[in-house]
Simulated assay, not measured.
Amino acid sequence: MTLLSKLQIKYPGALAWGFGDSATMADELANHVIEGRKTASCGSLTAYLNEASPPTVGSYHIILNGREQPVCVIRIVAMRIVAFNKVEAEFAYKEGEGDRSLEYWRQEHKAFFTRAGDYSETMELVAEEFELVEVV
């Protein structure tokens, strides 16, 4: 039995996924979660609405690294919808990326959502905060 299978038994219904849109980004952001630096994330509301099993408050998630291997488990503790141009410095800091500033957050997330093909200054985001449950 694989580690992922064991975790899916331990956390029934947990989705397994990696952060970002590249193996390098998945590794970097998963490490930030493990270090306690990253306690928040966001995605477009459009993508959220198109997910078969969208995250909910209280749901568990198995975080994968860039090689699709489980590295930790998180639990969503808060969610809200916010426009891209209304994201606050506090949330950018919780995302834990770069120098943790709002300016860095805007630059990198604009690039990310542009690559995904759905960037707009006023796009709605699902902003999630989470806690680290276990490192595997």
Rank of each mutant, 00 (worst) to 15 (best):
L4N: 01
Q8W: 03
I9H: 12
I9G: 00
Y11C: 03
P12Q: 04
A14P: 00
L15I: 14
A16G: 08
W17Y: 14
G18V: 06
D21P: 01
D21F: 01
S22G: 11
A26S: 15
L29G: 00
N31L: 06
I34M: 05
E35A: 13
E35R: 14
R37A: 02
A40G: 04
A40I: 10
S41F: 04
S41W: 01
S41H: 06
S44Y: 01
S44H: 08
L49H: 00
T56F: 10
V57W: 10
Y60S: 09
H61V: 08
G66V: 03
R67I: 06
Q69M: 07
P70W: 05
C72M: 09
C72K: 12
V73N: 00
V73D: 01
R75C: 12
R75E: 10
R75P: 02
I76W: 03
V77N: 13
V77M: 08
V82I: 12
A83T: 12
A83W: 02
F84S: 09
K86M: 14
K86C: 15
E88L: 07
E88N: 06
E88D: 14
A89K: 11
E90F: 09
F91V: 09
Y93R: 14
E95F: 08
E95M: 11
G96D: 00
G96E: 01
D99S: 09
L102M: 07
L102D: 04
E103D: 14
E103N: 07
Y104G: 08
H109C: 06
K110P: 03
K110I: 04
K110T: 03
A111L: 10
T114R: 02
A116E: 15
A116H: 03
G117P: 05
Y119Q: 04
Y119H: 15
Y119T: 01
S120L: 00
E128F: 13
E129L: 07
E131Q: 14
E131A: 15
L132M: 06
V133D: 04
V133H: 11
E134Q: 11
